[in-house]
Amino acid sequence: MARKFRITTTHLKWLSFVTCVVMFLATMGGLVVTKSGSGLGCGNEWPLCHGQFVPAYTISSLIEYSHRAISALAGLTALFSFIGFIFFNKHRELKVYASLTLLFVLVQAVMGALAVVFSQSAPIMALHFGFAMIAFASSSMMALGARRMDQQKGDLPIPDEPPVSKGMRNLTWFATIYTYMVVYTGAFVTHTDSRGGCSGVLLCNGSILPELSGGVAVAFFHRVAAYSLLIVIAVLAHYAYRRHPYNPGIRKLGVTAIVFIIMQILSGMLNIVTMKIPEWYFFSSMLHTLLIQILFGVLCYMSVRVWQLSRGTRGKLGQNV
């Protein structure tokens, strides 16, 4: 007699991992579309590409259509994860992550369709990237949470973690929200074609405070926001490491955050240096986006952990339902 198949925590863990990877590929694929100038590779049509399901074999149409296909796959994996965690999992926290992942995948898909129909509007394109990044961060938290859930299988003990202060919680939340705002300014630089507004790695067009107009203003304010974010993350990392000697999880997250923001700043400088070398600039801008995605995911997960520990859950995955 055949054994009845049952959805286990291990199945959900691997499903969440697949969802996270596909979500990452969809987000990076959107960047390839932007950097290669393939945003209108399928014309102003969605979901068809020049009136066809299978487009003509031009480079721009293939890039745009491939991005749409991966985004559709991301939607399917997000849907499967949502169903799996809603119906076959008892942890409320993971239900929330799965719901957020599906929600923001759908939102960013709508924004992508609007960007095509309305000829690549800069605000819509920036929002499209921002929502895609939230979807990736949600899927990352779902994958990390599912991993913790699988560790608890069979009542395996997970070490308790000391509580954190509300001040640490609020600082982490502020850093996470501010990071998202800085990302949006960077996306706006890209989609308004203002990346050349500030020449020079340290100074902007040879001045500490340049004439603020047009692309110069957009690029300068993004640069100021990025450097101020470095200060915010440095303060967060200091308090995470120095004030939590008995909480290795929070300390590791703080160190990871400061490492990635430093790498992010350096990659931004590399963007400026390689701006006139298209081949190198393509890869440096991809690296720039990759690093900020990881940083935002780390901060989102850290935000959840400090919230849990400030409420005295002491390392538990979350309340059951």
Rank of each mutant, 00 (worst) to 15 (best):
V164W: 01
K166C: 00
K316T: 08
G145I: 00
V96E: 02
R6Y: 14
T313Q: 11
S228C: 15
G51P: 07
M23I: 05
F174K: 05
R242T: 08
V189H: 09
F221D: 06
V110R: 00
Q319W: 12
S194L: 05
S71W: 04
R92P: 01
L127G: 08
G154W: 10
I63V: 13
P123G: 11
A109T: 14
L106M: 12
T289F: 07
S71I: 04
T179F: 01
P55E: 02
V164C: 02
V107H: 00
G41I: 09
L309V: 01
A146V: 11
E211Q: 14
S165Y: 09
V235D: 12
G215W: 02
T190S: 15
R68M: 03
Q120D: 05
I177P: 07
S207N: 15
V32E: 07
S165L: 11
A74W: 08
Y97I: 02
S16Q: 03
N320Y: 09
L114E: 12
A217L: 15
Y246Q: 14
A146K: 09
R311I: 00
G297S: 15
S140T: 13
V255S: 01
G130W: 14
G154A: 11
I134M: 08
R92W: 03
F17L: 06
D155R: 07
N205P: 14
A237E: 05
H91D: 10
A219N: 15
A132Y: 01
A143C: 09
L12Y: 11
T192I: 15
L106C: 10
A74F: 13
K4R: 09
I177N: 09
F118P: 04
S165E: 09
W46H: 02
I86E: 04
A98Q: 02
M28V: 05
I208N: 13
Y246E: 13
L229V: 13
L202Q: 10
I231D: 08
K95A: 07
K316C: 03
Q152K: 05
R147Q: 10
T192V: 14
I265Q: 10
A217T: 06
P159Q: 11
D155A: 11
L62T: 11
S310P: 12
Q108M: 08
A226G: 14
Q293H: 02
A226Q: 03
M133W: 03
S267P: 02
P159L: 03
L270D: 00
T172Q: 00
T8Q: 04
S207E: 15
E211T: 15
T274C: 10
H11S: 06
E279Y: 07
G145D: 02
I83L: 14
H238Q: 08
I134D: 00
C198R: 13
S207V: 15
F283T: 02
M125Y: 01
M263T: 06
G297Y: 04
D160T: 03
V21Q: 01
V116Y: 01
S119P: 02
L76K: 10
A219F: 11
L295Y: 01
R242Y: 07
R242D: 03
Y180R: 05
P162S: 04
H50K: 08
